[in-house]
């Protein structure tokens, strides 16, 4: 399988093969970091990967004071992806989804 002709499949294979950072995925596939990043975003949208934002505890002001909170002030943690309100870098854990059934 060529990463040039099947980049998304190559990224998924690298993650299934145990790559643990975006740099490692880029190294294994030979793709640019930007393309790897976009391919992972797409795999999350397709449901092939599960993304979960990691945060350390909750702020004393509650979800409304959290950068990961939703626009409505409700909890954004443990959602499928980081809140769109978040502007800084976030730590995200990715898990390859199990096929249904």
């Amino acid at each position: 399988m060529s990463a040039e002709s099947r980049p998304v499949t190559a990224v998924l294979a690298a993650l299934q093969g145990g790559a643990r950072s975006l740099a490692e995925v880029a190294e294994r596939t030979g793709l640019g970091r930007d393309v790897v990043d976009a391919a992972i975003t797409h795999l999350v949208r397709l449901g092939r990967l599960e993304a979960e934002e990691l945060a350390i505890g909750c702020p004393s002001a509650g979800c409304g004071g959290c950068a990961s909170g939703t626009a409505e002030g409700t909890a954004g943690c443990r959602s499928s992806a980081p809140s769109t309100r978040r502007s800084g870098p976030v730590l995200v854990a990715l898990r390859v989804s199990r096929p249904p059934g």
Binding site: S5, R6, P7, V8, G32, A38, A39, L46
Partner: peptide, 20 residues
Amino acid sequence: ELALADERFSWIARAVERAQ
């Protein structure tokens, strides 16, 4: 859907590789 994404990303990767 993965094949379709592969086709689009292949096109994207080529464009990014050459333009950036």
